[in-house]
Amino acid sequence: MAEKAALRRELLAARRARSPESRRTAARALARSALALSELAGAATVAAYVSVGTEPGTRDLLDALRTGGKRVLLPRLLPDNDLDWAEYEGPGRLTEIAHVGKMALLEPSGPALGPDAVTWADAVLLPGLAVDARGMRLGRGGGSYDRVLERLERAGARPALVVLLYDEEVVARVPEEPHDHPVRAVATPSGVIRF
């Protein structure tokens, strides 16, 4: 969809324009905002991801969840763009994996739990580029998290879906397609918005 592609280019350019210090400050504030979510406070298992590049930083949040006694599941990208999952055992147990034609990702080095492990999560933290006032999320376009959301729906799992973004990525409207799913909330450095 051309409208989605144009919006993605614009949002990615804005992320690239952020200074490293701005990204670090935003990551600390984002962790505080996300940890204030009742959905995370009450969760035993949280499916999350390790931020890369100019994405809103998740490392502070991952460590806080883990030290707070949460079981944190992190994805491993499969060759077909689907996601397998493994438990987060700390920053020293992340391995940089270079995927052909994609950016290198930090992935958990523990035992693989299978793609269905995400259905055990009480909350799923989703990457994205934007979310609108209806809770519709714009992803990067690879389809990995569309598969996750479809898997949750097929399993009848109803975890809290939360997208992590910079403040200016909460927009008036995101182009929507039939396979898109709304999220329950967005956490940004300045706070939480619920839908």
Rank of each mutant, 00 (worst) to 15 (best):
E21Q: 15
L152S: 08
A2W: 15
T25Y: 06
V124F: 15
V124Q: 12
P111G: 03
F195V: 01
A123K: 06
L65F: 05
P20D: 14
P79I: 11
P91C: 05
E87D: 13
I97D: 01
D84R: 14
S190Q: 08
R76I: 15
L62D: 02
K70V: 09
D180P: 05
S190G: 12
I97S: 06
V183H: 01
L126D: 09
L165A: 02
A130W: 04
L164I: 01
M103W: 11
G143L: 15
R15C: 09
P111K: 01
L37E: 08
A130L: 04
A29E: 03
G156A: 10
D63H: 05
R28L: 14
A185T: 06
A41M: 08
E107T: 00
V174A: 04
G114D: 00
R24Y: 09
A47H: 08
V100S: 15
V186C: 10
R137F: 12
R24M: 13
G42M: 10
V50N: 02
G156K: 10
T25R: 02
L164K: 01
G42N: 05
R151M: 11
E153K: 10
A47M: 06
V171H: 03
R15V: 05
E21D: 14
L7C: 01
Y88N: 04
L105H: 12
E21P: 05
R71G: 02
R173Q: 11
L77K: 05
G143C: 10
M1Q: 15
E89G: 13
T58H: 03
L149R: 01
R8Q: 13
G128Y: 00
T119P: 00
A155W: 06
R66A: 14
R23W: 03
G191F: 03
G135R: 04
R147G: 05
T95A: 15
M103I: 13
A6W: 15
T25C: 02
R9I: 11
N81P: 00
T54S: 05
L161N: 02
N81F: 05
R140P: 03
D63R: 13
M1V: 15
P182E: 12
L113N: 04
W85V: 06
A36G: 12
A31H: 07
E87C: 07
R8K: 11
A86V: 12
D122E: 06
N81I: 02
T54M: 00
L40T: 09
R194A: 12
A130G: 04
K70Q: 07
L30T: 06
A13I: 06
E176S: 12
A31M: 03
W120P: 00
G114N: 03
D82W: 12
P56H: 02
M103A: 10
V170Q: 00
G139N: 13
I97E: 01
V100I: 14
M136S: 03
S38G: 14
V50Q: 07
H99S: 04
A160S: 14
L106H: 11
E96H: 08
P56N: 04
S19F: 09
V124G: 13
V163F: 14
D180F: 07
E39Q: 08
V131D: 13
V163L: 05
R76P: 03
E39C: 12
A26K: 00
E176L: 13
A2Y: 10
G143K: 13
A31N: 05
K70M: 04
A2P: 14
A34H: 01
